[in-house]
Amino acid sequence: MEKVLEVKNLAKLYKNGRGVKDISFDVYKGDVFGFLGPNGAGKTTVMKSIMGLNMFESGEVKILGFNIKTQFEKALGKVGAIIETADAYEYMSAYNNLKIASRFYSNIKESDIDEILEMVELKEFKDEKVSKFSLGMKQRLALASALLSKPELVILDEPTNGLDIEGTVQMRNLIIQLASEKKITFFISSHLVHEIELMCSKVAIIHKGKLINSGEEINNIKEKYASLEDFYMDEINKRRLKS
């Protein structure tokens, strides 16, 4: 199978001693890959390093075979991402937000923007100001922006964080649908075990800056455990006993 994302021995440490060490995993075409861990475990640090927003001390990141350090533009050419915040111009319409964002890409037509708004179920609200949107609608608009580049890989940092039940279900179903119908590969971070279990096909778990596993099939985990939460807690407890 084709590797879309390769992370090898990644390390990024901050002056306070926090950060991540020896992070390695592969994401393959068609995966909805969950990156699970508590707040402060290092999820965002890894994501920023993948996107070239962090200068990591050691290790290697490749996207679609291109090295993020030496082939930056080629590596990120087919990547969409939402990391930390889903910002938009609230005084503007959804459509105009995407029109401005589309200037960063070549060959984006007005019909492409309409198609993407349709994908994220916002086409009927395209002319409304973003200030009138719910948090879930703003998250879907951010996802629409990430889809403008017609990406093969989409990286999402806590995409359901703060959403109500309806917004969470809409975002979850949208990701599953895009992966199935558009063949987009997703790399998704979350601290919510249940959401990763429902949304993702594979999971890697990070705890205190280190990986517990490098990407197991969730279906295989559930053959051995009643739930992903049971597996997660079992692995955490094993490491506590060792330390």
Rank of each mutant, 00 (worst) to 15 (best):
G80F: 09
K224W: 03
L36A: 07
N9T: 04
A142E: 09
A142G: 15
R172P: 05
I23E: 00
K8D: 14
K129H: 01
K182F: 09
S214V: 05
M119Y: 14
L13T: 05
N107W: 06
N237P: 00
L178C: 05
N16C: 09
I113L: 14
N161I: 04
I206K: 12
V79A: 03
E115H: 04
E73V: 02
D31F: 03
L117I: 11
S131I: 09
M137D: 12
K138N: 02
A88G: 01
D157Y: 10
K242M: 04
E223Y: 00
S190V: 06
E181N: 12
E216N: 09
L13Y: 05
E6D: 05
R240Y: 11
E166T: 12
E73L: 06
G40M: 03
N67M: 01
H194N: 13
I108C: 09
I175N: 05
Q177G: 06
I188Y: 07
D157R: 11
E235G: 03
A226L: 09
A179G: 14
N173W: 12
M137F: 10
N39P: 12
L98S: 06
G167W: 08
S243Y: 06
Q139G: 13
K8Y: 08
G52Q: 01
S243I: 04
K224C: 02
L147D: 10
F35A: 07
V20A: 01
D127H: 14
M47Y: 00
E195N: 04
K43I: 00
F56Y: 11
E181A: 05
F133C: 08
I218H: 05
K208S: 10
L178F: 06
M92Y: 12
T185Y: 07
M137C: 13
N161G: 05
K123M: 09
S131A: 14
Y225L: 04
S24Q: 04
V130G: 13
F66C: 09
L211Q: 09
G19E: 00
D26N: 10
K69P: 00
